[in-house]
Simulated scan of single mutants.
Amino acid sequence: MRKAITTATTLLTTAVLLTGCGSGGDGSTSSKSKAPSASSASGAPDPSASGAAGSAAGETHQVTLEVKGSGKGQVLWTAGDNGMDQVDLPWKKQTTVTLKGAELKLGAPLSVVPQAVQDANARFVFPACTITVDGKQVAHNEDEENAKGCTYLLKSTNRP
């Protein structure tokens, strides 16, 4: 039990440090202070979104991050921006992620990592999580022993 909690804490700390250490050139590793990118309702690329200098318009995707369970817990998430929030479970975050610049070629990371919570038997377990992109489930984890949560590399559907 203690090993699982230590592992979860280590993974969360590592993830926070890694998501905060980016080139900063495209703003994808900024803190919660940045609002989600503008997009069209259809999920199609928004012609008004500008990428890096000289690159084509961005490509937008509707992203949903979910964590099941009950009670309170911390959730570390990355989807365009990133954050670590104390939440009531179940939890859901819906946002729009716009791929632009280098992300059009390399992709953009999406993740949701829930902290372990106590179940009805007073065991610490990791809540199930899901990542959905444009209505399609792309990552899911129900393993109560797995501290990794859910991760997915969002790639362009119109690779140049």
Rank of each mutant, 00 (worst) to 15 (best):
V63P: 01
L76T: 10
G54S: 12
S55G: 03
V67H: 00
G54Q: 13
A57R: 10
Q74V: 06
Q74N: 14
G83N: 14
G83V: 09
L76R: 05
E59I: 03
A79D: 10
L76M: 09
G51V: 08
N82L: 10
A53S: 15
V63L: 04
N82D: 11
Q74F: 07
M84E: 11
K72Q: 15
S55Y: 02
T60H: 11
A56C: 01
N82S: 14
T60L: 07
T64D: 11
V75S: 08
E59D: 12
S55D: 05
A53D: 15
G69D: 07
A56D: 03
G73T: 07
A52T: 08
G83Q: 11
G73V: 05
W77G: 11
S55W: 00
G71Y: 10
W77L: 11
M84Q: 12
A79W: 04
W77E: 13
S70R: 09
A57I: 01
G58T: 03
L65N: 04
A52L: 05
S55R: 02
E59P: 00
A57S: 15
A53T: 13
K68T: 15
S70W: 04
S70C: 05
V67D: 05
K72R: 12
V75P: 04
G80N: 13
G69N: 04
A56T: 01
G83I: 07
G51H: 10
S55V: 01
S50F: 01
G51W: 09
G73W: 01
H61P: 07
V67K: 00
G80Y: 08
N82W: 14
E59G: 02
S50I: 02
G71C: 12
Q62V: 03
A79T: 09
G71Q: 14
N82E: 11
D81C: 08
Q74R: 12
G73A: 10
G71D: 15
G51F: 09
G83L: 10
K72C: 06
H61I: 04
L76Y: 08
N82F: 10
T64F: 00
T64E: 15
K72P: 05
S50Q: 06
V67R: 00
G54E: 14
D81F: 09
A57G: 10
G80S: 13
E59V: 02
V67P: 00
L65I: 00
Q62M: 04
N82V: 05
G83Y: 09
E66I: 01
V63W: 01
E59R: 02
T64Q: 09
G54L: 06
A79S: 14
K72I: 06
T78N: 12
G83M: 12
T64M: 03
V75A: 08
Q62W: 04
A56E: 02
G71V: 08
G58D: 08
E66R: 12
K72N: 14
L65R: 00
H61L: 07
V63D: 09
G73P: 01
G69T: 01
L76S: 11
K72A: 12
G83S: 11
S50M: 03
A52I: 02
K68S: 14
A57C: 06
M84S: 13
E59S: 04
G80A: 13
L76C: 06
A52D: 14
V63F: 02
W77Y: 15
A57D: 13
E59K: 00
E66V: 01
V75R: 05
T78S: 15
S70H: 08
G73Q: 04
G54K: 06
